[in-house]
Design a protein around this nucleic acid. Structure first.
Lengths: 329, 329
DNA sequence: TTGTACGCGTTATCAG
DNA sequence: CTGATAACGCGTACAA
């Protein structure tokens, strides 16, 4: 293994520094830097400019980020703080949209699955020194102030999506279809609790406004199918059985539907079910509140670019939710 | 906007440097560095060691990564290259398991949704200067050599999971249940093509070995429900209709099942369906080949830690696939 | 234990 | 206006 003495050794191929470019083009390092950074208020003759650019290109010079960061006190890294990657569908849209937009500005988007238990945020800043932080989930007060201590700007995605409104829309639709007794399938998953609570609160508000009884709450766990059967049974056994269920999301709606069919019942006929998200799988017939992933992503991109440019105006409001009626409700 | 002159300005709170610690504890910067890095072969008296550690703690000093990186030529960043976050379920396990393990060694795991179209890999290295790169998907030859040029170590996750074996297991199980004519639902998604092709090849191998006709291939697109109905119809109209389908993954298996039920048929009775992954949703009754996400994650963690320690032995082999028989096949 | 050169890019200050 | 010189940011590690 280590005995390949004949090997010319892949040669770590020395990094090409700006000094190399300077030497090769016969100018000073300062001039190279001015050219490469297009520094305003510094006029460089077009001739040398071209020459330097050409040699830099030829040698394959790429400025070494750690050195830049050390000098500037910040890096070209935009850090996305993610609580959880399991909600891959929408996160993927946002992260990919962001990276494309940032690439044009010379930034790179890196994401970190953040957990206070594993590593306090305060330790993260010196390790990464990001130019900007995008928080994809809620952040506590001390966490917020920890970011302020770092020199990074902060963009919080939290609050962009009106989750409460999603819950309202579910109930409004079910109500319009004649349902009066409604169940609510709430996720057991800790990491989505904030969002889930908002959606539930919206559903409750809508029920109250429409004069319906409070939704009958059941906690379900996608990792434990029996919780779905339990919920279904409980709802069926009620004095006045519920006729429709708001599911926290499409995944839960689909599992509810599968639970029904394994009991010989059918979603949309024996029990109405409505989800949230419009994940690809929902296209098979699940009524849902669609979250416009692309619109959401664009909105986040605008927030980030505004912040990078120190603009204080808000990006335009978008309608991010939309009812999609299909078979199950 | 800029006119908040009364504001005490959140004060960028100067960074605490190792020089600050040296000054405050009355020793040289060198000593501070030796203490903080536990440099072997450098005897530092226990007294000063304690003292330095204490002041560093008190001042809240955290070594500034860009400076370290500049000096060492590498950072404490481990970069995970991800093609796509939509497969959130397993990726989440791996990324979270890795970060926990790396945190204990003083590294931080950052992931980047990599696309050659957006930014060539060669530009990524100087921007991040990772100590190690974990590639979660396949990498082309030029991409590989680009990594060699950087000073980063490389761990390729590709190949850890025996996808071909998954396809074989699907067919073997269906065969054991008496099925002889088998369909294959292949995903249209570009980003999983490599994996999908491996699984299909495995299924074909098993058919050949068992003396079955080649599986009847249909391409389905989770974003387009009609492709599922099309596949179902095509299979039903065959001279000798197929009786069982291998789905590329559980998502497709579930959508196939939903397509069946919206035609009044049932998976497991009118047509057998078997998936791969055992995503939470599959627990509702989908027969599948489970991918042991935790075992997979542990394996990747071991690979990474071995690489970090320059060990050349392979981590122990694990049985990562397992048949889970449920209702649909 | 300490002094100090070094890694690399940036930018304030100078010289033509 | 065009270009060069040199100090700086911060942690590391060799020579003393």
């Amino acid at each position: 293994m280590a005995g390949d003495e004949g090997d010319p050794k892949p040669k770590p191929s020395r990094r090409v520094t700006s000094a190399d470019v300077a030497r090769a083009s016969g100018v000073s390092r300062a001039t190279v830097s001015y050219v490469l950074n297009n520094v305003p208020n510094r006029s460089v003759s077009a001739a040398t400019r071209e020459h330097v650019l050409a040699t830099a290109q030829r040698l394959g010079h790429i400025p070494y980020a750690p050195a830049r960061s050390l000098r500037l006190g910040r890096s070209d890294i935009v850090l996305a703080l993610v609580r959880d990657y399991t909600y891959g569908y929408i996160a993927d849209r946002i992260l990919s949209g962001l990276d494309v937009a940032l690439a044009q500005r010379g930034f790179v988007l890196l994401s970190h699955r953040y957990s206070e238990q594993v590593r306090p945020l305060a330790e993260l800043w010196p390790m990464v020194a990001p130019a900007l932080v995008v928080s994809m989930g809620g952040l506590s007060a001390p966490e917020m102030s920890s970011i302020q201590d770092s020199r990074a700007k902060l963009v919080a995605v939290q609050g962009v999506l009106p989750h409460g409104r999603a819950g309202e829309m579910q109930v409004e639709y079910l109500h319009s279809k004649g349902h009066r007794r409604i169940g609510y399938a709430f996720p057991a998953d800790q990491s989505v609790e904030l969002i889930a609570t908002e959606r539930l609160a919206g559903a409750r508000r809508a029920c109250e406004r429409l004069g319906l009884p409070e939704p009958s709450l059941r906690v379900v766990n996608p990792n434990d199918a029996s919780t779905f059967f339990g919920a279904l049974d409980a709802w069926a056994k009620m004095a006045e059985p519920i006729t429709a269920v708001c599911a926290h999301n499409d995944e839960i709606a689909i599992m509810l539907g599968a639970g029904l069919s394994s009991r010989g019942l059918r979603a949309g006929i024996d029990l109405a079910v409505i989800g949230v998200d419009n994940i690809p799988m929902a296209r098979i017939g699940v009524t849902t509140i669609e979250i416009d992933a692309d619109g959401f992503a664009e909105h986040v991109v605008e927030m980030v670019l505004h912040s990078l440019d120190d603009r204080t105006d808000k990006p335009r409001e978008r309608e991010l939710l939309r009812l999609i009626a299909r078979d199950t409700a």
